[in-house]
Design a protein around this nucleic acid. Sequence first.
RNA 1: GCCGCCAUCGUCUAGUGGCCUAGGACGUCGGAUUCUCAUUCCGAAAAUCGCGGGUUCAACUCCCGCUGGCGGUACCA
Length: 414
Amino acid sequence: MSSKVKVRFAPSPTGIAHIGGIRTALYNFLFAKKNKGEFLLRIEDTDQKRLVKEAENAIFEMLKWLEIQPSGEIIHQSERLEIYKKYAYELVSKKIAYEKDGAVWVSLPDDKIFEWTDLVGNKKIRFEGSTQEDFVILKSDGFPTYHLANVVDDHLMGTTHVFRGEEWISSTPKHLYLYESFNWEHPEFVHLPVILGSDHTKLSKRHGAKSVLDYKNEGYLKEAVLNYMALLGWNPGGDREQMSLSEMESLFEIKDINTANPIFDQTKFEWLNGVWIRSISTQELQERLNEFYSDDKEVVKIIKSEKSEELVKAATSRMRTLADFKNLVSKDPQNKKTKEEEKIAEKLNNFLDKKLKNWDDEELLSAIREFSKEENVPFKTIFFLLSGKTSGIGILELNQIYGKDFFVANLKSK
RNA sequence: GCCGCCAUCGUCUAGUGGCCUAGGACGUCGGAUUCUCAUUCCGAAAAUCGCGGGUUCAACUCCCGCUGGCGGUACCA
């Protein structure tokens, strides 16, 4: 392999930029980085009927957010119709393609064997020409089909490695035949096992969404998205779980891509997000939160307050997503007290009022202990009465951040 | 149906003929720390390596068959 590595992410803007798509983009990117090659972007907008207006922007936004930016010019297949037409008719004149119903078709020779070495699993895959039906390369609306456009562009762009989902394996013979008919060398093929949902079928909207941007909006860190996506089907060996983009860039090898279909595990993804939240600096986390809550005045006010750093520190270990932050730091009581609890709250209020002078941590803690013992009230209840929540940031941390007034307000609230 | 890909704990996976009475992680369960919840730390259960044949002194690792899962079978990508 003497030529410089050149790969491309070639999404079709027909729907959401889903997890499978982003993983393909990521593997392309990692491979390019690892081999000091080029990573390009090509928009395959050849299906006029299924085109979704917002999809293209979503793709750009996603790549930008994840910082896996392509270099070079972005190619739109819809702007290259003349090129595909020219090549389609070249095949017609070579008698490889024929016209029917206003479209250009190709038929594979029945007796020909199509074989290539797929780099995932490094195995030979072979098809007999007879298993492939005639296929359209140029549609009657003048647009090319995937088969033609993909082959033509990859050749013209000098793509060395085609990373794509394994759903393309069955049509690779068509592509092989096209390369051969044009007298072009075909690129290496890297067919990635498709990601499955928890019900073991191809991951789709049915499994509860999710575009990568949805995950962004749910409070996932880009590091976690990248990290989890990469590990879904690739493993550099060893016990490593947490990896940054640059670490992955230096470790990525095609031979470490798994051959089996991975199942997307939301729970592990959340765990990994928590790991990332805990591993960035408080200052960095503050910035992420600030950005995440930019439309939420209430939270922005909290993040911008003097106590911001303490709050974020206290919340860090308790977040799995950035979205958890709001409930954690909210001053509003989240559960109503029972009649019984109201009585205890009143007692506790009087007790603390009598006992505490400075409301410092030491005083507060020993008073709570005393109250708990004397009245036989579990700490859990006291926590609830003081904080207004059944779980969350610790009492002493809250004392540092919000102080006496906050506790008294909670004790008095109904 | 036909064609193709795949097959290690529930899940992600390590493992490339002897180091495996199969290792790690998530999750689950138990415990420690503890002001609740988390975090952190310990520990446990969890795969007779899908099944059946080979090859070999030796197979999770190689070969064949079966079964199962997934994918493709459009003038969609």
